[in-house]
Design a protein around this nucleic acid. Structure first.
Lengths: 360, 360
DNA sequence: CTGGTTTCTGTAAGCGTTTCCACATTATCA
DNA sequence: TGATAATGTGGAAACGCTTACAGAAACCAG
């Protein structure tokens, strides 16, 4: 039924070892013999079995990518970058979308131990910090995006790190808003505890501190926290953001600017803003993190702090492949990429607010 | 180094067969023995090797998903639907993003033959029609989305089909525009030859025919055709659409409505429209295919013909899993889902156009 | 012509599971 | 009580490859 290398070998009058050599183009094999074997393979329609190869070599040429959502243009672009290099290097991508569900994340990480994955790229928060540490210490090839492990500072592992300069991003965005007179800046972010949010928040604090001010914690809202019963609802994350924004605006009408750390929330935020009659940018300024194709076409065009996400993805994949293919590689220096601020029309100085209100 | 079932067996004083039985919870095994084995497994940190299991069982519990782009909300939502059921059934997803590159698609389809994939869900055009047919006839479990094979009409294969009623979609959208007085309706679509585009176009023709009119082929533009040298360019598809739209509007200024079959082109289209001063909807009406979260927040909010994409994805995945797990299943009836028309503000009657022009 | 290298090929031992078969023990029931 | 069925366990052959290792032949420099 299914043709095996053994049958090819018999039919070509050679040993399996030789067949294997022509398949993998390694070792010596006589040109005429190679031709004969290739002819037989074509005739009988031989296709080498990958699972057998995987077992024999202990490798699968498959890497896992763990992200929390497919609705975020950030993860999409990241995935594209990763996949473009993987494909180029002959690796495949197993996609794990956790939807902020730790259980799903753990199951997929386990595939590393089960030998089904050669390595993993993770772009999630720190809900699974200990597990990650364990895996890294067992020397599985892993690359973390926007995440650091202080515990590993002096250990030589096979872990790699790629990140945007989120501190810088948070700092500059906040500085920009402060200069425009904003003092009550709200932040809506996705996963609680994610290190990327922490970095941005630290940058924010620094900008505040420079003016002798402090971040108001009650204006920091996390929306993706609840492990949701996975209703197939479209725009679920937008829905979470909607109610959170409504609540925020009711209890803190003094907010004049909102930082959106996680784009799937944008719809809900805009909806809420619309409903309470706070228009952008006159009544509330809006800044998104990371650019995306439709950002200039929103109403109003969205000002964003962009990150070279595609390049981050590429760097991560390249790094991971290196670490997979060279087990001795122990470079742990994080690769850091600078963000870029793209000003469009969703921000306005606080001073502009009053005429707008007066007009009503 | 790595712990195997054999070592667990020795340490627990049983045979490998018994260990296998407790891992897979099949066959009989005494409760006390089971407990002992589980204890040993926990102690030594045993993790079963998946690739060995894959080889032994001839299955991988992994299915491939082939799409043409990650930039389209359609594919994203489809992927979510698929993954939600796969995850639920204990399957993993290998993602193949072809970027309209047939070579990539073929390589990934080959994984089916190589035994690395239990099945495949395809949502691409018909560039690989013959290959697909070959695979189907070799009885690999496959599910096709928005695609049919007349050749298979009377064959009992393991192929499955899920589709939106695209004919209906094309028909009704066109009818809507015709009623508003539009007569020169342009269409911008992604992959050439994709069967989904053909269905929509047929519906369109029918609507025209009902008024004794005919589709103007020169107003039908395909944009994703060129197998692009994969510049990591963000919004590449938007860029294609941009130049195509520009050209279209110059050579055919009589166009008063544009149907967008493929959303990644939206940015380019809007950009082009803006530049030539044709504003939406007064000067040109715009209708997109398939809804997406940001559609109501564009400028203007986009009218769309929606498809229950998430449900299509779910149905496809369920079907595929059925076909994988029951090799005798030979139901080939396509599952068809009705679309829904969502009217927002990107369309206007042609009559509205003149005041707008007069105002300039 | 000799010793050493390079080229070529085969044998066979893995890789770590699953599963068929056989056999032994225990429960069930007329 | 004996036949039959249900339960529990082990041996060992797959699954289809890769890859030492070893040996043979060809080549080459001195």
């Amino acid at each position: 039924m299914r043709v095996t290398a053994k049958q090819v070998a018999e039919k070509a009058g050679v040993s399996m070892a030789t067949v294997s050599r022509v398949i993998n183009r390694n070792g010596y094999v006589d040109a005429s013999v190679r031709a004969r074997i290739e002819k037989v393979m074509a005739e009988v329609g031989y296709v080498p079995n990958r699972t057998a190869k995987n077992l024999a070599t202990g490798r699968t040429r498959t890497v896992g990518l763990i992200i929390t959502s497919l609705q975020s243009p950030y993860f999409i672009r990241l995935t594209e970058g990763i996949q473009d290099v993987l494909e180029n290097k002959g690796y495949h991508l197993l996609l794990c979308n956790t939807k902020f569900n730790t259980k799903i994340e753990l199951e997929n990480l386990q595939l590393l131990r089960e030998g089904m994955l050669d390595g993993v790229i993770t772009s999630t928060g720190n809900l699974t910090h200990e597990v990650m540490l364990g895996l890294v210490r067992q020397n599985y090839p892993m690359v973390f995006i926007n995440r650091v492990f202080d515990e590993l500072k002096d250990e030589a592992t096979r872990a790699g790190f790629v990140m945007g300069d989120l501190h810088y991003a948070g700092l500059n965005v906040t500085r920009y808003l402060l200069e425009q007179g904003h003092r009550n800046i709200a932040v809506l972010y996705g996963a609680a505890n994610s290190t990327s949010n922490q970095f941005r928040l630290e940058g924010m604090s620094q900008a505040y501190a420079a003016l002798g001010l402090r971040v108001r914690p009650e204006l920091l809202r996390c929306v993706a926290n609840p492990p949701d019963p996975s209703s197939g609802l479209n725009d679920k994350e937008g829905a979470w953001a909607y109610s959170e924004t409504l609540e925020l605006l009711q209890t803190h009408p003094e907010v004049t600017a909102i930082l959106v750390f996680y784009h799937p929330m944008l719809t809900g935020i805009m909806q809420a803003l619309r409903e309470v009659g706070r228009n952008v940018p006159d009544s509330v300024s809006l800044i998104g993190f990371d650019d995306f194709p439709l950002a200039p076409y929103l109403d109003p065009p969205l000002t964003v702090m962009d990150q070279p996400v595609y390049e981050i993805g590429r760097a991560a994949a390249r790094l991971l492949v290196h670490k997979i293919e060279d087990a001795t590689l122990r470079v742990a220096e994080p690769i850091v990429m600078k963000p870029e601020f793209i000003i469009r029309r969703s921000c306005a100085p606080v001073a502009n607010r009053y005429p707008a209100l007066a007009a009503e």
